[in-house]
Nucleic acid binder design. Sequence first.
DNA 1: ACCGAGACTTGAGATCCCGA
DNA 2: TCGGGATCTCAAGTCTCGGT
Length: 308
Amino acid sequence: MGAPKQKWRPEEEAALKAGVLKHGAGKWRTILKDPEFSDVLHARSNVDLKDKWRNMSVTANGWGSRERGRIVLKRSHHARKLEDNSMALTTIDDNDGIVDVKPLRISNERITTTKRTSTRLENLIMEAITSLKEPTGSNKTAIALYIEDQYWSPPNFKRILSAKLKALTASRKLIKVKRKYRIAPSSFPEEKEGGASAAAAPLPESGPESSREKVRAITKAQVDAELARIRNMTAQEAAMAAAQAVAEAEAAIAEAEAAAREAEKAEAEAEEAQAFADAAMLALKNRNAAKLVHSLPPFSLHAQTQQS
DNA sequence: ACCGAGACTTGAGATCCCGA
DNA sequence: TCGGGATCTCAAGTCTCGGT
């Protein structure tokens, strides 16, 4: 492109909003000529205004900017991963009828071929752990064997699996206790095309009131109201709303961090409990062995020590 | 084997441009 | 003025490589 990109400044956006409010969308040249806005928008053409308004409208409709996507993800560990771009945002009208299905793109759910492979492996790991049904979790070898047995594995599969298990543990989708991996309660399987992990960990919530549904199902009335509200904002109101959104996001991040600390604490306690149980088992075994030794006739004990 | 740094890749969003 | 395509920018993920 010939001209360098000129990013829109907040005051330009505010002027555009105010101009649309005053003259209506589509009256781009009129807005540009209006002395009230021409100072701020002197560097913009009518087409620029049109493009920006289009972009802002898309953002306001919910499948928008990177920042929004990022905040959404930070706000909820339950943010759904998308397996492909076809995931739909279903808007529901007041009669509960589906009126529109649009592609929803969440920016931080970056869908790449490599990531798709990675996501599939994640699903397979979840499936393996679920299918193995080991009460204390499954170790890496068992998981690898299951996947190799049920599916297919590349030559460097062990290495890939190790890395993935580590990543999943770090992201708290899995809990690692004594080299065994369990699915974290807060983790749930991704929506996927093949359904290989359909039998993976149970969903933390189910039914129409789940948070997942709340995220995805937005009524048309809500969308319209939100859009109208945004369009009618003055520059000051827009600035205040932005500040509030930032504050909300920060609060949500703090909440998530607190939850992560809780999880770490719980994990440590689980490990401690496991260690205690192991020690108790060992003590019990030793006691039983001692009892057995004492119950043996002296010559048998002698024979045993001779043998050993 | 593990870790960290830097290069590379990828796709979504933002902006520019053109033809109807 | 509008719709849609082209291009650029950015952020996040992956890969590679050298050091420990």
